[in-house]
């Protein structure tokens, strides 16, 4: 039996949940509209290291999703917030496309390192520069630690290996800012008056979306789209609050049972 609670906010993953590449999950636009008729705040949360908020927004609008820029919260934004919070000047080892999300951040005479997926920066001289900053006490802020990713020509190293190398060289630990970090989900809710117990997260990644959210007291719904593979819901303990076919089913469940 589902615990009844006053739901105040819904967090929604993007890629794999609302859309797959440039195609919307069937019925997702209408489902989002239905969700908007309820008295809940909505935030879209995503781990991205390449796409700026503006790019994400444009893509969603092309697929006819009704989304506002302030509703999107990405791991790049989380990194930016952390940089501002710490009042540091980062060396940015991120893809050029992601730079707009760091506009206005001072980067001269750097005393921090922000690292995402940026193969073009992962050469010896640049990493050595980052290494020297870290040895001098600069914090290492990682967008995520993925081992590798798939490219057209085969598998390719992600940022994780290079972050691990820098951690080893300097005997430090990176601060990872994206999902499944609890802080990421809490920051996405900034400005919304609610506690984690009043929030539900919908995503296709059992560990990063559902596990991360549930670890800080939110409810998590796993959808069987995107990267979902059979039996993913058994990967975490406690299990997802709910596992369902797709985003529209998740919305219907919320509207019928949680409000």
């Amino acid at each position: 039996m589902a615990a009844r609670r006053a739901l105040k906010a819904v967090l929604v993953d993007l890629s794999g949940t609302l859309h797959i590449e440039d195609a919307a999950v069937p019925g997702a636009q209408d489902a989002l509209k239905r969700l908007r008729t309820a008295a809940v705040a909505i935030r879209f949360v995503t781990n991205t290291t390449k796409e700026s908020k503006a790019e994400l927004l444009e893509r969603l609008r092309k697929m006819n999703f009704d989304v506002a820029e302030h509703e999107i919260f990405t791991s790049l934004t989380a990194a930016r917030n952390l940089v501002q919070e710490k009042q540091v000047r980062p060396m940015l080892l991120i893809d050029d496309r992601a730079l707009p999300d760091f506009q206005g951040i001072p980067v001269n005479d750097p005393n921090a390192v922000v690292i995402g997926l940026a193969p073009e920066h992962f050469n010896y001289q640049v990493l050595n520069q980052a290494f020297r900053l870290l040895l001098n006490g600069a914090p290492l802020i990682a967008i995520h630690k993925a081992r590798y990713y798939k490219r057209k020509d085969g598998l390719a190293l992600g940022p994780g290996p290079f972050i691990t190398g820098l951690e080893y060289a300097t005997d430090t630990k990176a601060i990872v800012v994206g999902k499944p970090e609890g802080k990421f989900f809490l920051e996405a809710l900034r400005g919304i008056d609610c506690t984690p117990e009043e929030v539900i997260m919908i995503g296709d990644d059992c560990r990063d979306d559902v596990g991360g959210a549930q670890s800080i007291g939110m409810l998590g719904i796993l959808v069987k789209t995107g990267k979902y593979r059979t039996a993913d819901e058994e990967k975490i303990n406690p299990a997802p609050y709910l596992t369902c076919e797709s985003f529209p089913h998740a919305v219907d469940h919320i509207l019928q049972h949680l409000l």
């Binding site: 590798y148 691990t164 190398g165 080893y168 060289a169």
Partner: peptide, 14 residues
């Protein structure tokens, strides 16, 4: 200068 160790660790992790 970074030595071989960090790159060994990178491949181990990957």
């Amino acid at each position: 200068m970074l030595d071989v160790g960090p790159y060994m660790k990178a491949l181990e992790y990957a």
